[in-house]
Amino acid sequence: MLSTLARRTAFTAAAAPKRPPLTVFTNPYQPKKVWPPDYAQLSFQEQLRFEKKYKRRVMLACARPRWDKGVKLAQLVTVVGVVGWLVFFSELEFYGKSYKPSEEIGKSVGTIFGIFSEENRYDRNPDGLNTNTEPRKPNPRG
């Protein structure tokens, strides 16, 4: 390792051998197979195999799973939001009859179907925690 480092530092830039740039014609490494193959010389089965291989490689190279999942999720949210807005809040006219959603529907959707409404704000769930602060009475039996 030390000898290689000493040899490389001894050469100057002018003394370094000039190599032509690496191109298709000056490449010293020859490929094992010619690509793309000559389809006129291949049988039908070999052509089909090459087409399948090429299609599979293109699909793998172009696959973007996170991007596709994000796009699908954005499409779903957009469609559900637009349909929900049309059903619950918009005033439309169908075949000459006007459709006006009732205020109760808009109010129930706006308060998440009544869970967070003003009337139910302080109601307690019977299955919930007991928030009673009164101390327990001792049992007379002991």
Score class of each variant (00 low, 15 high):
Val24Asn: 09
Lys18Thr: 14
Ala61Gly: 12
Thr133Phe: 06
Asp68Gln: 12
Glu51Gly: 01
Asp38Lys: 08
Asn120Ala: 09
Pro140Cys: 03
Ile115Asn: 05
Tyr95Asp: 15
Pro37Glu: 13
Arg66Gly: 02
Asn27Gln: 08
Leu76Phe: 11
Ala13Pro: 00
Phe25Ala: 14
Trp67Ser: 03
Asn130Thr: 07
Gln47Tyr: 02
Met1Tyr: 09
Met1Thr: 12
Arg8Cys: 04
Thr4Ile: 06
Asn120Gly: 07
Gly142Phe: 05
Arg136Asn: 10
Val58Ile: 12
Thr12His: 02
Leu5Tyr: 01
Lys69Cys: 07
Ala63Cys: 03
Phe44Thr: 14
Val58Asn: 04
Gly81Ala: 08
Ser108Phe: 01
Ser3Gly: 13
Leu5Gln: 11
Ser102His: 06
Thr23Val: 08
Trp35Lys: 01
Phe89Asp: 09
Leu129Cys: 02
Asn120His: 11
Phe25Asp: 13
Ala14His: 05
Thr4Ser: 07
Arg121Val: 02
Arg19Ser: 12
Pro135Asn: 10
Lys18Asp: 09
Asn139Val: 03
Ala13Ser: 10
Val83His: 04
Arg19Gly: 01
Gln47Arg: 15
Tyr99His: 05
Ser3Asp: 15
Tyr95Ile: 11
Tyr95Glu: 15
Lys32Gly: 11
Val80Thr: 13
Ser108Tyr: 05
Arg56Gln: 15
Gly110Ala: 08
Arg19Pro: 00
Arg121Leu: 11
Arg57Ser: 07
Phe89Leu: 06
Arg19Phe: 14
Ala10Cys: 03
Glu93Arg: 11
Leu92Asn: 12
Gly81Lys: 03
Phe11Ala: 10
Pro65Glu: 06
Met1Gly: 15
Asp68Met: 11
Arg64Gln: 11
Gln75Leu: 15
Thr133Pro: 11
Lys32Cys: 04
Cys62Thr: 10
Phe116Asn: 12
Thr23Tyr: 07
Ser98Thr: 10
Asp38Asn: 15
Glu51Val: 14
Ser98Pro: 02
Ala63Trp: 04
Gly114Pro: 04
Met1Arg: 12
Glu46Met: 07
Gly128Met: 05
